Computed example of a mutant assay.
Amino acid sequence: MISPSEDEKNQIIEHLLHIKSDSEDVSWTSSKAYFRRYQSIFCPDEANDAVIQIDTPTLRTHLDVLTFAKSLCDNHALSRGEMTRKWFASRATTAAEMEHISRAVVNIAFMIDCNERDYYPKGFDCSIPRAKWERDQSFLNFLETSFLPLQQRANAGVTLGDKASLKAWKLASRYGIRIRGTDNLLEHLLYDPRHRTLMIFHHVSYLRFHLRCSRNESLDMGFAESLALRTLPPQLLFETLLSLHYILFPIASRGGKRSISLLKKCIRKQHLDEELLSYENVRRLPDDFTFKYWGGRLKTLQEVTKRPPPRNSLVSWFERHTSERNALTVAIIGLFLTAFLGLLGVIVGVLQLVIAWLAWKDGH
């Protein structure tokens, strides 16, 4: 498809971001990062290296995208196979095209990759759920299966207090952790110890606009009720925003200059959402607020600060080879080396005495 026109962009923000395009303070220009993602998926070109690219006559117009996104919410009890057959009942299309298009629609409507790989790099927590929308699985069940296990991993709720060590600039400068933006909400706060990278979901404008849909609803609203509003649970959206602007990048707090500086660098180099640099209270923060979705990953980050990762490959090699058994072996070897060097010292001392005695004898 070709890039959306101004009118089509206004329709997109109204249906996918749930904002009135004629409002005084909001237009599609306030969602530039979101539209970059949208165009990278549905309007690919040779210069674009996006993970998902859809370029098929089966998907005819941008109105198709909006219609399919609405259908995801209205028919969330249907399986992926049933959903795509409903979409393309009157169009000739292949199974591969239907799978790619459904992936793209989920990606842009809910910022979730529903075809996630079946593995993660070495060192990742093996309890991370496999986020794949199966052909015989309903969309509602896919969302619940992908996100609810995160709550089980969090166990006791993690609060906003005592998170000063998790400021992004501290993670970068003290522990050598690199911040990487992601367009996939499921990867938010995912830490890769092998490459010392922390993924952050950077689409702040998307989070704010969707959170406004449920501003007057309970934070505990579930996935089924949220889909009726064509959005995700407010607790999930709110936690993501708070983890960005209260914990990693507290730009509104006193002494937030380093956070702002790091954000500007990330935005410039990675083309992240510029709205990261602005703070807004979308809804009231409860006094007893806890992280139910991202608590487990925040705990992982706290453990990293308590046991910092090695800063280079040499230190990493030593750490990998210094188990208790190896440490005992090294201690024994060290003991023998000490004894051997001590014996060499005695021999050298005796030789020096002999040489000195011979020299004295020759002199007399």
Rank of each mutant, 00 (worst) to 15 (best):
M1R: 00
I2N: 13
D7F: 10
Q11R: 15
E14T: 12
E14D: 06
H15K: 13
H15N: 13
L17W: 00
E24L: 11
D25H: 14
T29A: 04
S30T: 14
F35C: 02
R37V: 09
Y38M: 13
I41A: 00
N48E: 11
D55T: 04
T58P: 03
T58Y: 06
L59S: 05
R60I: 13
T61S: 13
V65Y: 03
T67P: 05
T67W: 11
F68K: 00
F68V: 00
A69Y: 07
S71C: 05
S71I: 01
C73K: 00
D74N: 12
N75M: 10
L78C: 06
R80H: 13
G81I: 06
M83N: 02
A89S: 07
T94Q: 01
E97A: 09
I101W: 00
V105C: 03
V106L: 01
I112F: 12
R117K: 11
Y120R: 05
P121R: 00
F124S: 05
D125N: 08
P129D: 05
K132N: 11
K132M: 12
W133K: 03
L140D: 09
N141V: 03
N141T: 07
N141K: 07
E144W: 04
S146D: 01
L150Y: 02
Q151F: 04
A154L: 02
N155R: 12
G157I: 14
A164K: 15
K167N: 06
K170A: 08
N184A: 10
L185M: 11
Y191A: 06
H195D: 14
H202L: 02
H202V: 02
S205W: 01
S205V: 01
R208M: 01
R208S: 00
F209V: 05
S214N: 00
D220S: 14
D220M: 11
M221A: 13
M221V: 14
A228L: 08
L229F: 11
L244P: 15
L244W: 05
Y246L: 07
I247D: 00
I247F: 04
S253T: 09
R254M: 03
R258V: 04
I260T: 15
S261R: 05
S261Q: 12
K265Y: 10
C266I: 14
C266M: 09
Q270G: 03
Q270P: 02
S278D: 12
Y279T: 11
Y279P: 04
E280R: 14
V282G: 03
P286G: 05
D288P: 10
G295E: 02
K299G: 08
K299P: 08
K306W: 04
R307P: 04
R307L: 15
R307S: 15
R307F: 15
P309Y: 09
R311D: 06
N312M: 12
S313E: 15
S313I: 05
S316A: 13
F318V: 14
F318R: 05
F318C: 09
T322N: 11
S323Q: 07
E324P: 08
E324A: 09
E324H: 10
L328M: 08
I332A: 14
G334I: 04
F340E: 11
F340W: 15
L341I: 15
G342T: 11
G342S: 10
V346G: 07
V348N: 02
L351E: 07
Q352S: 09
D362T: 08
D362G: 04
D362I: 07
G363C: 09
